[in-house]
């Protein structure tokens, strides 16, 4: 019995280890992810030992609503998110595992669209999907689909990025506009009552990182400001390095649409998630060289120097407002929730 890709839905049997599951694997996953390591069909992927450098591993679960949003979908996001966690450690990503938790009732057409998008994102990033798993949960027990990806990469010898290396006087660089992903997701959710042209910035950053490391090997540390936004990332860096992070409001790259959406909903772009941006900390003398290299890469075209590292007060993040006054940038308490008036 062939799978009905037009009208069919995910059924419990698709995760049950029976024929249905094999049909899904044969018809969808193998063709989409096609590579020699996966098509061995064993219970594990066997990877060649890296020739040089060290092995980097990271894992990330993706639970976004809605599944499809302007500028991306959960499939591409599951690839980009994990690749970026490798990339900001200076690792070249090579392999991904993909574990799916499907909700009974998910349209097979949607599943196929997501898997094809995931496969395309992996191909574009030159990363192979070498092992995977599928489970199906009863209707009402999931949000359509959850995707968990684990990434394996190699960190070249000599590359040593760490928050511990951050020193007062270092500069903070941001690779592009803030809050695009968060704003795109918020405005795609029903009930907001407005439409917007904002697209998620979902993208894989390892090529940009390679360019940056070549231009400025002295980069201290990089992070991708995902959940909690730039504010959370800077707090992490300040805390781990025992320094203070100071940013300049006037230097933050922001799309006017994102600013407007934030105004309407009562959000602050500093706390909105990004899925294709990174923050780099580098010694002052490397700043201009690094900025130039970033701006020459498409994913860093709007890169900017957004702040610097100070010694005092350790562990804190402060912002010079556009008017020259200073204020604390606090952690976000819980989720960012819309204001009422």
């Amino acid at each position: 019995m062939a799978i009905d890709w037009v009208h069919g839905h995910v059924e419990l049997a698709h995760g049950g280890g029976a024929r249905r599951m094999h049909e899904l694997i044969e018809e969808l996953f193998y063709p989409a992810f096609d590579n020699p390591i996966l098509s061995r069909g064993e219970d594990q992927a066997v990877l060649p030992s890296p020739l040089n450098g060290r092995v980097a591993v990271t894992t990330d679960s993706h639970v976004v609503t809605p599944l499809f949003f302007p500028g991306g979908d959960i499939g591409a996001l599951a690839v980009h998110g994990t690749i970026n966690d490798l990339a900001v450690g200076g690792a070249q990503p090579h392999y991904l595992s993909v574990a799916l938790i499907l909700e009974e009732g998910l349209a097979l057409a949607d599943l196929r669209r997501i898997i094809e998008s995931l496969a395309a994102a992996a191909r574009a990033a030159r990363v192979e999907i070498v092992t995977g798993d599928t489970k199906v949960v009863e209707r009402g027990k999931g949000d359509g689909i959850y995707i968990q990806t684990t990434g394996v990469g190699t960190v070249p010898t000599g590359v040593e990025l760490s928050a511990q290396a951050i020193r007062p006087g270092d500069r903070l660089l941001l690779s592009g506009t803030l809050g695009d992903h968060g704003a795109a997701i918020l405005s795609a959710r029903s009930g907001v009552g407005f439409t917007s042209p904002i697209r998620s910035d979902s993208a894989a950053l390892h090529d940009l990182v390679a360019v940056m490391l070549e231009a400025a090997p002295e980069i201290r540390c990089m992070r991708d400001p995902t959940r909690g936004g730039l504010a959370a990332t800077l707090h992490e860096l300040a805390r781990q390095s025992g320094t203070a992070m100071q940013i300049y409001e006037s230097a933050l790259p922001l799309q006017p649409e994102v600013v407007s959406a934030c105004e309407l909903l009562g959000f602050d772009p500093l706390y909105l998630a990004n899925e294709g941006k990174l923050v780099a900390v580098c010694p002052a003398e490397a700043t201009e060289r690094l900025l130039k290299a970033m701006q020459q890469h498409p994913l860093g075209a709007q890169a900017a120097i957004v702040g610097e590292v100070a010694a005092e007060p350790p562990g804190f993040v402060e912002m010079e407002t556009v008017f020259g006054s200073w204020r604390t940038v606090d952690w976000l308490a819980g989720e960012q929730l819309p204001r009422i008036c």
Binding site: P313, T328, D330
Partner: peptide, 13 residues
């Protein structure tokens, strides 16, 4: 006050 001022330990530069 907590979000925006509490941690300000220094005067404006």
């Amino acid at each position: 006050d907590y979000h925006y001022r509490y941690h300000r330990q220094r005067a404006i530069r």
